[in-house]
Amino acid sequence: MQSTRTHSTDVQTRPLRIGTRGSRLALAQAHMVRALLAAAEGVPEETHEIVVVSTAGDRILDRPLSEIGGKGLFTEEIEAGLLDGTLDLAVHSAKDMPTKLPDGLILTGYLPREDVRDVLVGRTAPTLAELPAGAVVGTASLRRGALVRHLRPDLSVVSFRGNVQTRLAKLERGEVDATLLALAGLKRLDAAHVATEILSLDDFPPAVGQGAIAVETRTDATALRARLAAILDDNTAVALACERAFLDALDGSCRTPIAGHATVADGQVAFSGLILRPDGSATHAIRVEAPIADAVALGASAGAELKARAGAGFFDPD
């Protein structure tokens, strides 16, 4: 009798279905995972199927994420496919992943991390410092908006949804004077040349997970996770475990301006975290370091410390 597709972990040789969003960047990232896995296994890339899944975050573009549900809007439909067995693995931008996953799913790991910095793409001036007073900066990120307001309170920040190409087209049409994007995404799209300024980590720290591509599977897919181990990066996993513990301690979502960045070297993890009021008027920062075995505890304690420093109501909108 012919076998049917189930949640079986016997996947050591069969082709895989890789779930992803349909934007050019999401597809580029899914193709990266497929190419690396195929090369590791010595099979043609086409052995594995890329399955595009429409998510609510891609469909609803007329409201800020903070108003319609936050990060889960980019993952829920894809995760449903993992849980019902129509997908074997999913590829996400790590910064889109909520800290709490549905029961039965796990972040198996990450590809080696790209550059974590943000860039400015300026139409009326090339740098954040050179934008004239009153210039309009468009961003969908509360973190980026709060950082702009902190550094340049004389600028106007407006909500600016859409994929990379959509935002660049809006900028070209003159809807805003500048926008902010992740350098990693532009590199993956061979579009880093559009950046007019690469923002420093000191002035403009990144979102938790920025620059990392996450691979999600079912928790029972033990054989599949063994297959994926060949393409995943241990240092990125340690850094992201620290960052996500920090975010979790702060109840972080698309509703709160939070930055966090961990690096791993010589058996140590170094972490920098920042929280901002939405209007950029106040910040709390922390820098800590610990052995990599304590990465999760380091991130969690850093988040708890900043939460205590900030006090109740720190993230409330004005």
Results as ranks from 00 to 15, higher is better:
I275C: 04
D279L: 08
I292A: 07
A293P: 02
R287G: 05
Q268L: 15
A293V: 11
H261G: 00
H261I: 07
D294P: 08
A270N: 11
A262H: 07
T283S: 13
D294W: 02
V264I: 02
L276I: 05
G280I: 06
A285Y: 01
S281E: 02
Q268R: 15
F271L: 08
V264E: 08
A293D: 12
A270G: 12
L276R: 06
A262E: 08
R277S: 09
R277W: 02
H284K: 15
T283Q: 13
L276G: 01
A265D: 11
E289R: 14
A290W: 10
D279T: 11
I286F: 03
L276Y: 13
S272C: 11
G280E: 06
D279N: 12
H284N: 10
I286Y: 03
T263I: 15
P278K: 06
A290D: 11
G280L: 11
S281F: 07
R287V: 15
F271K: 00
D266I: 08
A262Q: 06
I292Q: 10
P278E: 03
G280V: 05
P278T: 08
V269C: 10
V288E: 15
T263A: 10
A285G: 09
V264F: 03
G267E: 01
F271N: 01
A295R: 09
R287S: 13
A282C: 04
Q268A: 06
A285D: 11
E289Y: 04
H261M: 05
R277K: 15
I292C: 09
A293Q: 10
V288G: 01
P291F: 13
P278S: 08
D266Y: 04
I286H: 05
H284P: 05
A262S: 14
P291H: 12
A285V: 01
T263L: 04
A290G: 04
P278H: 06
F271Y: 10
V288P: 00
T263R: 13
Q268C: 00
D294V: 01
V288S: 13
A295N: 02
H284F: 14
A290M: 09
S281L: 07
V264K: 06
V269E: 06
G267D: 01
T283N: 06
D279I: 05
I292N: 00
I275K: 04
G267R: 00
T283C: 04
D294T: 07
G273C: 00
G267T: 04
A265T: 08
V269N: 11
A293H: 08
A270V: 07
S281G: 12
V269D: 05
E289L: 12
A265G: 02
T283K: 15
Q268S: 00
G273R: 01
A282V: 07
P278W: 04
G273S: 04
A262K: 08
V269S: 03
D266L: 09
E289D: 10
R287L: 05
A285K: 13
A270S: 14
D294Y: 04
T263V: 15
A282L: 11
I286N: 06
V264G: 11
